[in-house]
Structures are given as structure tokens and as C-alpha cells.
Amino acid sequence: MAYSFYEFENVDSCQLALSKAIKEIIQKEGFNSLALSGGKSPLGFFHYLREEDLKWQDMHICLVDERIVGFDDKNSNTYFIRNEFLQKKASNAHFISLLEDVNLSDEENLKLANEKYKQPEIAVLGMGNDGHFASLFANSLGFDEALNTNKNIVFIEPKNAPFKRLSMSLKAIEACKRLFLLIQGKEKKEVFDKACVKFDANLPISFILHSKKVSCDVYYSK
């Protein structure tokens, strides 16, 4: 299996441990680029990491995926990252949003996202109850391309989730030097266990867990 599994009794201890692990890697390896996922699940992790003593002025922060909505929309991952992570000590970090301008066409936003893309050394993924990660939803418009393209950023339109999105492709995620997956709760653990058994296109996270290109550190809290 292409992952290591770390289990914690509660969310707080899990997210603190993840923050410490990423701080140590950044300091040891001299990494300066980090891709983060949106959503409420990693909130505690964001709050811990933004307080760490790192050379934030040298850090480049980007998103694993983004919904095509305005930056002031609370559904925007950019809005979330700016308000919950790029604060305190992390306020000096350099942030590049995947989305250029919600008023541009989807094609133009995709083109610009690929042009300004900088490969992150570290990425922190989340996972939905349906097994999706980033915005790679099974059976969504753009899903097959996301798995097979050489492009770094792809356009995704989910069938069972709101908003069109821009997302790192599987190729871009597998190009990270260190990859982390943060999950919590019994339901997601059951999905994770099922995805560990074999590749399953209906459980996109299985492509990471069985990857031959990158190993993933999984941080799970009960």
C-alpha cells in the first residue's frame, strides 16, 4: 500500500500532530510550497499551523481545488484560507488562488490557472464521504481527464455536488514530494477501508492509496 496510517483518539490531537509533522518537514527539507484543501474539517489544523515559527515570508501557499464562485462568497476556498489560515504568523505567506476572476469564462480561468501553476512540494488532502479528494468526484464532468491528463489543473463539474471547480489533477497531486490525507469519523474510516482494498473508480481516493508514484501519510481521528 502507498500510505502510512496514524490514528488518534480525537480531532484536536490529530490536527495538532499533523501541524507539527508538516512544520518538521518544512524545516528539515527546506520546502517552501504547500497546497491546502478547503472545507471545515481542517480548521483546527489551519489554526495550529498558522502559529508555527516558520519562514512564512518564503512560503508559497496554494489550493488543491477551488469552487468557481466570487472570492467574497463563503463557499470559496480562497475566502476560507484567507480568513482561517493566512492570519497570525502565516499572514506573511505568499498566496496564489487557483481562480483568476469569476467573471471570466471557465476556459480562460483554466488556462490562467495552468499558466501560473507552481508545483507544491507538500499537499494536504481531505476526503468526502463519497471517497472524492480535491474536486475529483467520481463520474463528474472532467473526472476522466483529471485522472489521465498531463495538465496540472483541470475543470470539474460534479453531478452530485454544487459549483463548477478547478482542481489539481492526479498527475499534479502525485508530483508532490510529501502528501497528507486528513480524515475523521467512523463513516469516512469505512470509506477509507473500502478504498484500501483495490482501485475503484467510484472511490477516487483509491488512486492515491494505491499510487506507485507517491506515498501518503494518513492522519485519522475517531
Rank of each mutant, 00 (worst) to 15 (best):
M1A: 14
M1L: 13
A2I: 01
F5G: 05
F5W: 13
E7R: 06
E9W: 08
S13K: 12
C14K: 08
L16G: 02
K20H: 07
F31L: 12
N32M: 02
L34P: 01
L36M: 14
G38F: 09
S41M: 15
L43Q: 14
G44A: 15
G44P: 05
Y48P: 01
Y48Q: 13
Y48C: 03
V64D: 00
I68C: 11
G70I: 04
D73E: 10
D73N: 15
K74A: 06
N77Q: 08
N77L: 05
F80H: 01
N83A: 04
N83C: 04
F85D: 06
Q87S: 08
K89H: 10
K89Q: 12
N92W: 04
D101P: 13
D101M: 12
D101K: 14
V102W: 09
L104I: 11
E108D: 15
L110N: 13
K111V: 10
A113C: 07
K118F: 06
Q119V: 06
P120I: 03
A123V: 09
G128D: 13
G131E: 06
H132S: 14
H132V: 08
A138E: 12
S140T: 03
L141A: 12
F143M: 14
D144H: 03
E145H: 02
A146I: 04
A146E: 00
N150I: 08
N152W: 01
N152T: 05
I153M: 10
F155G: 00
P158W: 03
N160T: 14
A161C: 07
F163H: 14
M168R: 00
K171E: 02
F180V: 04
L181M: 09
Q184D: 15
G185E: 13
E187M: 11
K188E: 11
K189L: 15
E190S: 14
D193T: 10
F199Q: 12
N202K: 12
L203W: 05
P204D: 08
I208R: 00
I208W: 07
L209I: 03
S215L: 07
D217T: 01
D217A: 08
D217F: 02
Y219E: 04
S221Y: 12
K222H: 14
